[in-house]
Simulated assay, not measured.
Amino acid sequence: MSVTNSFDQLATLRAVLLATPLFAVGLTLAAYLLGICVFQRLGRPTWLPAILVAALMLAAVLSLTGIPYQEYQQGAAWLTVLLGPATVALGMPLYQQLPRIRELWRPLLFSLPLAAGLAVIYALGIAWLLGASPTILASLAAKSVTAPIAIGITQQLGGSVALLMGALLITGVAAIAFVSLLARWMGIRDERIIGFALGLNGHALGTVRAFEIGPTAGAFASLGMSLTGVLTALLLPLAWRLLTLAGMSVGS
């Protein structure tokens, strides 16, 4: 009888905690702070950023406590809303670096559509070859775009936001590692090029890494992230619609 009462009390406690967003928000912030501590203790490795450590800790807690992701997501929803203003706030470093951006507008204009298009094509191509369903393909299409824009694109395409968030995390971590390795291997030390590559390929995570390098790298990362988001939001839904219609025509 006492064991049954204990389980009932735990179930009641969990229901009370999940009734307000404070638990989910507090759990998220605690995981992130612990992630920063682990990240610094390990010597700040580029392949293991604090947000990845925090995500793994958070996933472990949800799994051990049996809290469904949907219930956690509802409580932490307003943190996602804050991503929008945070992205807009990156306009300040862009303004501060505007003269340097004007110097490189031609190569930036040339490389942006090519890189943004390839980011979508290779992800969808690999997933399609592996037999991914249309829902998975729609969830991966915007994996190189910053979260506030990517969520809207994914919902429009009919994908899963939960799967998208995982893809965003993996993409950001991989971009940080590969951009750093390639820049070292190719001898690239220009913060403008490194920052732009980090923002274009690694969205918000890459931008955070770029600001750790320097303000110039951070500003160009913000530029790459913003322009990639805008370009993808404008063209990807249209391209997806055309591909869907072409697939329907072939199937019929």
Rank of each mutant, 00 (worst) to 15 (best):
N201Y: 04
I121C: 08
L18C: 10
I213C: 07
V81P: 00
A59N: 09
G214N: 12
S63F: 04
L200D: 07
L109A: 15
V173F: 00
P68E: 06
L22V: 14
L235R: 08
A204V: 06
G251R: 12
E212W: 01
G152Y: 05
M1T: 09
A138T: 01
I151S: 08
V38L: 15
Y69W: 03
M248Y: 10
L245R: 14
P134I: 15
R184W: 00
G152S: 11
R209Y: 03
A31P: 05
G158C: 13
T207I: 05
L27K: 02
G125I: 02
F178Y: 06
L98S: 11
R102M: 15
G187I: 14
A86Q: 11
I136M: 11
L182T: 12
M1Q: 04
A76F: 13
L90P: 09
M225T: 11
T80C: 00
E103I: 14
L48R: 06
G166F: 04
A142N: 12
L62P: 10
T20S: 12
S144W: 01
F178I: 08
P68I: 01
F110M: 15
S226H: 00
A177Y: 02
L27P: 00
L56K: 07
S222V: 07
F220W: 02
A24F: 04
S139H: 01
G43C: 07
G26N: 09
A77V: 12
V145P: 01
T65K: 00
G187D: 07
T80R: 11
L112Q: 10
L98H: 13
G26T: 11
A177P: 07
G159T: 08
T65D: 01
L182Q: 03
I194K: 01
G152D: 13
R100Q: 14
L163A: 15
A59S: 13
L108Y: 06
L140Q: 05
L137W: 01
L140K: 09
R184L: 02
L182S: 12
L27C: 02
A221F: 08
G214F: 00
G26M: 07
L94P: 15
Y69S: 03
L118R: 07
A24M: 07
A31I: 01
L124V: 12
A30V: 10
M165R: 10
G26V: 11
G117E: 08
A246K: 04
P85Q: 09
G247L: 09
R41F: 08
S133E: 15
T232V: 13
R14G: 13
W78D: 05
R44W: 01
E212P: 11
Q74W: 00
M186R: 15
A197M: 14
L82E: 03
G199T: 05
M1D: 06
A132W: 03
T20A: 08
V179Y: 00
P134R: 08
A246P: 10
T216N: 06
W185F: 06
Q70A: 15
A55Q: 01
A221T: 13
G125L: 03
R14A: 09
L242A: 15
P93Y: 03
S139M: 04
T228L: 09
V88K: 03
